[in-house]
């Protein structure tokens, strides 16, 4: 090691997946996540405790693409912290690195809460994690040059491990290819894209608009052969999924939105694959 830090880096992240990612690159840093796996990242209060955390941050990382538009700009402004303003090296958006899906040239709010920059739920953009890791390493190196070498080494280790896991996951997920599901809010757009699964309908009538009775009724008219399961996320209301389950007898899968406390990013991916394989293929042995 070249030198120890005078003070550990203080990092603010909007979602727990970025805490997990950054912890792998900067294990000594103090990382605070603004949200948990049970909270919808669109609806967060720009509350005093978050402003106080933002004020102290040396670096911040968020998903971006307007996911946090209802609260992050308020935190940036109120924190009076130059390090977390847009276009600073120390303010990092994952969606600026990921190859975004569902970008729109024309956005009208009658289409629901969609984002011109594409679907912002990028925590399962598996292949892009390599690129994100590279940028994260570089940014950490420039913010904290004294520890640049350890960020470089940790980044290389993370990517090496991730590449191995990608091969393993893709082999395990082979039986999931072509599976069709009904899901909620296109939260798993990147996951399904990666695994070759297809979402044929959404429990929400339009992105960000809560399931309505009329819309759910229309889903019961779907050809039963056209989908294999109903998938929703840990922070979403389970009523709509359960209702459709009762009507159609299709299995319901609740997937985690993001890492749970202390979980690493690859453990999250392991868990998600287990959950999918358990129901869609056959129970996984522990």
């Amino acid at each position: 090691m070249l030198s120890a830090p005078a003070l550990a880096l203080n990092i603010f992240v909007c979602e727990p997946e970025w805490k997990a990612l950054l912890a792998a690159h900067a294990p000594k840093a103090t990382i605070y996540s603004a949200t948990t796996a049970l909270q919808d990242p669109h609806y967060v209060q720009a509350r005093p405790s978050l402003i106080a955390k933002m004020r102290q941050a040396d670096m911040a990382m968020c998903s971006g693409a307007e996911l946090e538009i209802g609260w992050l700009p308020m935190l940036q402004a109120r924190s009076s912290n130059p390090a977390v303003q847009n276009n600073k090296q120390s303010m990092l958006y994952a969606s600026e690195i990921v190859s975004m899906l569902d970008t729109h040239h024309h956005v009208d709010r009658s289409m629901g809460d969609i984002h011109a920059y594409g679907n912002p739920h990028v925590q399962f953009a598996a292949n892009d994690m390599i690129r994100i890791s590279r940028v994260v390493s570089k940014r950490l190196e420039s913010i904290d040059p004294a520890n640049a070498f350890s960020y470089l080494v940790n980044g290389v280790k993370f990517r090496e491990h991730w590449r191995k896991k990608l091969i393993e996951w893709e082999q395990r997920a082979e039986p999931l290819r072509g599976k069709q599901v009904v899901s909620y809010h296109e939260t798993y757009r990147y996951l399904f894209d990666w695994l070759g699964m297809e979402q044929i309908a959404d429990l929400e009538p339009k992105p960000g608009v809560s399931p309505t009775t009329a819309h759910l009724q229309s889903l019961t008219k779907l050809d039963p052969a056209s989908f294999d399961a109903i998938i929703y996320s840990s922070h979403q209301n389970k009523r709509a999924a359960n209702w459709l389950h009762q009507q159609t007898d299709k299995p319901v899968i609740q997937l985690p939105l993001t890492v749970s406390k202390g979980q690493t990013l690859d453990e999250l991916y392991d868990r998600v694959l287990d959950d999918l394989l358990n129901v869609l293929v056959e129970p996984v042995k522990d």
Binding site: A52, R55, Q56, S80, N81
Partner: peptide, 12 residues
């Protein structure tokens, strides 16, 4: 002029 203190409790 506003000042936000670098504390865990928000103080402005």
């Amino acid at each position: 002029a506003n000042l936000v203190l670098p504390t865990d409790m928000y103080i402005k």
